[in-house]
Nucleic acid binder design. Structure first.
Length: 591
RNA sequence: GACCCCGUAGCUCAGCUGGAUAGAGCACCAGAUUCCUAAUCUGGGGGCCAUGGGUUCGAAUCCCGUCGGGGUCGCCA
């Protein structure tokens, strides 16, 4: 039940009725007509901009249209008041039972309160997609949480969501890991020393110096003995060691993600796309559409690479689809570029029936967005929609001091460091307290602090307080049915305090919140909603400190207590429901 | 040089896809505890929404310019 959606359909019906009566012209576009909460609650319960939106196409003054609509809307028994205000807003006040019905609905529907109804609309969310070259770091953690929460949010809004991970296991980076692994391997079988390894790192012969390759090398030595020590043909040992390390690293990645509570439905391997001929197929598709050609790119502006020289390459006509320049799909060596693989990957998604795509990337990939969107347009004749959510940097701090790096990985703070330090739920929640295109400070001290400043604590505390009330209620009212079903049967009209009603109205806004955040691909909105809801709840709680008659539990008044318990429970259900979108467990108590 | 993101209270940030008098927290000031968790709550001051134009009934929000911060810029992924 979404009362704003309900009111919107009533407004639409009122317009239709006026059209039928000839008071408004036919064929009006109602797309932009909205029913929303007014900015100032004093204005009413629901406001609609219908009169202002329709004024121009109908050729009438907003206020005149508003009067017509008000006359229609007033015939609705659930509308107690309808007024025109300001430039033409129509403010509606609804019968109080509206809010009691909402609460009853929350109690009866439980965790699925707020679920949307767009069943069957498929959407693909690709996130993390980290190179299988080592442990996950903080940046990956943010992308993982944002992508996962977005997927959960879309699912709640009613989409059929597929969560996907693209494994970049075909490029030069994984070869570089194989090279580093070989050195660690030689060390593991006693052919070189740690000093030799560090020297090679110093000479930049290898790029990956982290300790995390040591156990991989040991496992390889255990399996194959000294088999690879004498093999010097790159074409032989690189693929073998690459395969070994990719498999290992993907296990590591999956373990890290599991520790964060993130699970993907589909893993797509770049190497498999290549081996299966999907890259050839995708590029043939573009070539057949005359969207590729062999040409020479202009030299890059700004910082010039040392070894730049003009060379002919196979290019994709990205400029036809809104990109700045045409983009290379083949290196001058003739090998496919990373972009070619990505074209094939996106074609693969399209071929699997996805039109709606979301990719969550790090902000350093911002320059890559247009070309992939261009490729998708080319592949789908303009029908495919790709939204790329870029995640900005995370600065890891402790009491304001930058945390430099992990002992294990060497150069960066890992996802595991974060989880070990503050726990999975805190990591997840904090990562969602900023919009993803804004930088985020993650301060170990602040995110574990027990104060209003810390949104995780503040929201969890509200939930725990609600549970505490129920523990007391069970003692105060032995034998009384305090289940959701029992509470739904309570006389909710006893909720008469203005703050109680305000809280009910916030619960009524949850379904609209879910839909808006999902369509905008902005899970962080849920964090702010939950914070506001918690603030309202803490406020009501403390009113009981000043006036004992406002406490939730009244020993001498069971029916009033039950009505208030229903409200407390409703708040708890919605908070738990919001936390579920974040993949965070609500806490029962905070001792 | 080009492209992308950002610029809102002293600080950290919201602002629901163009709506009414721009909101929270921190910090500052003044209050609340025989009471279900005061780990909380109530009240107060604080703004040229970087800046200059434009679009319209109406702009923090959309478009263009300028300034400032960050990111990216053939054969890396």
């Amino acid at each position: 039940m979404n009362i704003f959606a309900t009111v919107k359909t009533r407004v639409d019906a009122a317009v239709a009725a006026l059209v039928a009566e000839g008071k408004l012209p036919a064929g009006l576009d109602l797309e932009r007509v909205a029913a929303e909460p007014p900015r100032d609650p004093l204005h009413g319960d629901v406001t609609t901009n219908a009169a202002m939106i329709l004024a121009k196409p109908a050729g009438q003054a907003p206020k005149a249209i508003a009067e017509l609509l008000i006359a229609k809307l007033k015939t609705d028994p659930t509308v107690t008041e309808a007024n025109v205000a300001g430039p033409g807003f129509i403010n509606l006040r609804l019968v109080p039972s509206t809010w009691f019905d909402v609460l009853r609905d929350v109690l009866q529907t439980g965790p699925s309160y707020g679920d949307g109804a767009r069943r069957g609309e498929k959407i693909n969310v690709e996130y993390v997609s980290a190179n299988p070259t080592g442990p996950m770091h903080v940046g990956h953690a943010r992308g993982a949480v944002v992508g996962d929460a977005l997927a959960r949010l879309l699912a709640k809004a009613g989409f059929d969501v597929t969560k996907e991970y693209y494994i970049n296991d075909a490029g030069g980076q994984v070869d570089n890991v194989a090279r580093a692994l070989r050195m660690r391997y030689l060390q593991a079988i006693g052919r070189i020393t740690e000093a030799d390894f560090q020297a090679a790192l110093e000479r930049k012969e290898i790029q990956y110096g982290g300790d995390y390759l040591v156990p991989v090398a040991e496992a390889l030595a255990k399996r194959d003995g000294d088999k690879w020590a004498g093999v010097n043909d790159d074409a032989v040992w690189i693929p073998a060691l690459r395969e070994f390390t990719v498999a290992w690293m993907m296990n590591l990645v999956k373990e890290d993600l599991a520790a964060l509570g993130v699970q993907h439905d589909v893993f797509t391997s770049e190497k498999k796309l290549v081996d299966d001929g999907k890259v050839d197929g995708a590029l043939k598709f573009l070539a057949d559409a005359d969207l590729t050609y062999t040409g020479v790119l202009e030299p890059p502006k700004g910082k010039m690479p040392d070894d730049w020289e003009p060379r002919p390459q196979l290019l994709f006509k990205a400029t036809q689809f809104g990109d700045e320049v045409d983009r290379p799909v083949k290196k001058s060596s003739g090998a496919w570029t990373y972009f070619a693989g990505d074209i094939a990957y996106h074609k693969d998604k399209v071929d699997r029936g996805f039109v709606n795509l979301v990719n969550v990337w790090g902000a350093d990939h911002g320059g890559y967005v247009k070309r992939v969107q261009a490729a998708l347009k080319a592949l789908t004749d303009g029908k495919g929609k790709l939204d790329v959510q870029l995640c900005q940097m995370v600065r890891v701090l402790n009491n304001g001091e930058p945390v430099k790096m992990s002992k294990r990985a060497g150069t960066f703070v890992t996802m595991r460091d974060l989880i070990d330090e503050v726990g999975k739920d805190v990591v997840r929640f904090i990562m969602l307290t900023r919009k993803n295109d804004a930088p985020l400070d993650f301060d170990y001290a602040k995110v574990t602090e027990r104060s209003r400043e810390n949104p995780v604590f503040y929201v969890q505390y509200a939930h725990a307080r609600g549970r505490s009330v129920f523990r007391h209620a069970a003692e105060m009212f032995p034998g009384v049915d305090l289940s959701d079903k029992g509470l739904a049967a309570a006389d909710l009209s006893l909720l008469a305090d203005s703050d109680e009603l305000q809280l009910l109205k916030m619960l009524a806004a949850w379904p609209r919140m879910v839909e808006g955040a999902a369509l905008a691909h902005e899970p962080h909105r849920v964090a702010f909603y939950m914070y506001d809801l918690a603030a309202q709840f803490h406020g009501l709680w403390n009113k009981g400190n000043e006036a004992a008659s406002l406490r939730f539990l009244q020993a001498d008044n069971t029916s009033l207590s039950l009505a208030r318990l229903a409200l407390v429970r409703g708040v708890g259900v919605v908070i738990a429901s919001g936390l579920a979108v974040f993949g965070v467990e609500p806490v029962e108590e905070m001792r």
